[in-house]
């Protein structure tokens, strides 16, 4: 349905609002235009005290660039890995993160929240 609409990444997106997910979307388009592979991660569900609301986005490039966030920083590393996997095989991924105990720093949310994240690669077409 988006056929006929030019990918319009122009000065207009700079606009007065700098709030997410504007930046992640704009960076994703810029990286894509520059020839880098791109994946987008989106928060689809939250419970408890999750720092990023549903709809928050993070863009990850094949070369390792990152913009935006899906949590307060606790799960970004795992999401980046999933993003690279999605870029590699083209398949979307659904991730869940929950704090299980005090030692779960590497995979959990320190704040005690639970989030679900959807990760998809930007197609090359």
């Amino acid at each position: 349905m988006s056929s006929g609409i030019e990918p319009a990444f122009a000065a207009g997106t700079r606009a007065a609002s700098a709030a997410a997910p504007d930046d992640a979307l704009a960076y994703a388009m810029r990286w894509h235009a520059g020839g880098d592979a791109v994946a987008l991660a989106t928060v689809t569900e939250t419970w408890g005290s999750a720092p990023c609301p549903v709809g928050s986005m993070m863009a990850v490039s094949g070369s390792g660039r990152i913009e935006g966030s899906v949590s307060g920083g606790c799960v970004e590393a795992a999401v980046v890995q999933a993003a690279q996997d999605a870029i590699a095989d083209g398949a979307p991924r659904r991730l869940s993160f929950a704090v299980s105990d005090g030692s779960a720093w590497s995979v959990g949310l320190a704040c005690g929240g639970t989030i679900k994240v959807f990760v998809e690669a930007l197609q090359l077409a």
Partner: peptide, 16 residues
């Protein structure tokens, strides 16, 4: 997501 869809989304946001 396709680049065309991403472009259309960015454009919709830019035009409020």
């Amino acid at each position: 997501m396709t680049p065309a869809l991403l472009g259309a989304l960015i454009e919709a946001r830019a035009h409020r």
